[in-house]
Write a protein that binds this DNA or RNA. Structure first.
Lengths: 196, 196
DNA sequence: TTTGGTTGATTGATCAGTCAACTAAAAATA
DNA sequence: TATTTTTAGTTGACTGATCAATCAACCAAA
């Protein structure tokens, strides 16, 4: 274990441990000791690097958001210029292997609740919501008239959030394929009915 | 204040106070003292009537579920035999004045999170999910082929949950009308496209 | 010998749950 | 009717456990 430049390693390990702890408990009601223990360090060290628990939680949310953003950009790049494929890419990213796993789903849900109390978390979640909406609307813009694109983007976003929350209620490994299929079916129906 | 038969009054007051406290905090992280204070009694009395905090929370969830169930039955009765109107009724109930208010929305969200830890709360939420699904599928059965009815029922249920979670993120009074309009638009599109 | 990394021990606050005691209404008894 | 007894309702004070946050000290590399 190198003694130099431990800070980024520890921060990353603590953030991963936070997601893992939230996943295990199913809520943000996790202790600093639990998190630190999962990262293999003492709780004092977690405080040393993050100051307060609240900041660690915010950093964790930021990390999840950043990963989702990076995945989305990569997927959009891979989808090219075809608008229909771009919509599919935006949808698929939210149910990809790296996002749609139990601990991440639990974290999303828990952060939604915590956002009621923490303005900073609410701000972060709003950024996510705006980005998702903007990605969807921009891709749908080429397929539907503006007003329909707006409504459809909102519907897809609500569907995604709804599938997350419902999946959290089920046991076992979440089935991403059926979730994607459901959203895709909605999209296909809407396009068939409303496409210009 | 009568000394006789206080128990049902106190239980009701404490359950109402629990919803109010959850609404104010935005999560289940409320103290027995806070709840009891809102009900105008001491925390010891809350323990006297409910034993443990967990039981009070369960009773509160049961109360919300019972109210929603009663509203749904009434709405279905009022809708009569017309299947299309029955679907609309099931949707509308979830966004009715008595259900779609900030404190109730916060409570739903918080209970979803807590359900990860509490088997009893998970059981209750599953009952709600099954009932909603069953109501939707039964009403849709007359309008769509069985397979489509199943998928559409799941989509509408996910849409409703998604709209709840998204509304929790916004400030101010939730706008039920636009939420209903969004679900109704989805339904109209689906029926137009897939109706037998 | 400085500096970054690390921890055990401690503190102070919070909170669920308990308990003994008090009140007043109702029921039983004289 | 008048008195005692029981019972339901209620609380303030307390306990024990938990946990975020702090701090003085320690270690090892540079």
């Amino acid at each position: 274990m190198p003694k130099t430049g431990m800070e980024p390693l520890r921060r990353k390990a603590l953030i991963d441990a936070t997601i893992s702890a939230i996943g295990a408990r199913g809520s943000l009601d996790v202790t600093m000791s639990d998190i630190a223990g999962r990262a293999g360090v003492s709780s004092a060290l977690a405080h040393h690097y993050f100051g307060a628990k609240e900041e660690l939680l915010q950093a964790t949310m930021r990390h999840i958001l950043a990963e989702l953003g990076a995945d989305a950009r990569a997927a959009l790049r891979a989808a090219g210029a075809d608008q229909r494929r771009r919509v599919a890419a935006v949808i698929a990213v939210n149910f990809s292997e790296s996002q749609f796993r139990p601990s991440t789903i639990a974290a999303w849900l828990a952060f939604y609740v915590e956002a009621q109390r923490s303005p900073e978390l609410r701000r972060l979640l709003r950024i996510y919501a705006r980005r998702l909406h903007s990605n969807l609307k921009s891709a749908l813009g080429g397929l539907l008239p503006p007003c329909e694109a707006e409504l459809t983007a909102e519907s897809i976003a609500a569907l995604i959030d709804g599938l997350y929350i419902r999946r959290a209620l089920k046991d076992g490994t979440p089935n991403a394929d059926s979730a994607v299929a459901l959203v895709e079916d909605y999209l296909a129906t809407t396009l068939a009915q409303k496409a210009r």
